[in-house]
């Protein structure tokens, strides 16, 4: 169960960020923001050679005391960051991977909307619902 899901634009500003309402929202902003360092590092480490075969899933970005931060980057350099509770040990890498894939598909749907202006904040209800389902659902 994710506690925070964020979509970050190529230029590293948030297109969408949602966290569990019970927690301090700003905390997750900082967490996701700082995780971008790791994402950048991982992307630059991968290099440009294997753009096609590149693994989009970046894996665990960094663990904190209470949370684990996972990352995923699309070919257009849009980043997905998911924060999960580290106490939730049931959550395996594969589940995280599939969650990111779902997120990516939903994001693609958003982009297909002709009325969506790339670079704007995502305000799609369908995307919202999907994120909600991921935040509630216990994998």
């Amino acid at each position: 169960m994710a506690v925070c899901i964020a979509v970050i634009a190529k230029e590293n500003y948030p297109l969408y960020i949602r966290s569990t309402p019970t927690e301090n929202e700003l905390k997750f902003h900082y967490m996701v923001h700082t995780s971008l360092d790791v994402v950048d590092e991982k992307i630059s480490a991968m290099g440009k050679a294997l753009v096609d075969q590149r693994e989009l899933y970046l894996g665990l970005l960094y663990p904190t005391e209470d949370y684990k931060v996972y990352g995923y980057v699309t070919n257009s350099k849009v980043k997905f960051v998911m924060v999960v509770d580290s106490s939730n040990t049931a959550l395996r890498d594969n589940e995280i991977r599939s969650m990111f894939r779902k997120l990516h598909n939903s994001y693609t749907d958003v982009m297909c909307n002709p009325f969506y202006n790339p670079g704007d904040r995502i305000q799609s209800r369908a995307f919202d619902n999907m994120v909600t389902s991921m935040m509630i659902q216990v994998c």
Binding site: N12, Y13, P14, I17, E25, L26, H29, Y30, H33, G119
Partner: peptide, 12 residues
Amino acid sequence: GTHRGWAAVQMR
């Protein structure tokens, strides 16, 4: 153009 930054943390 439009603002490109992490507004929430910048504002803070």
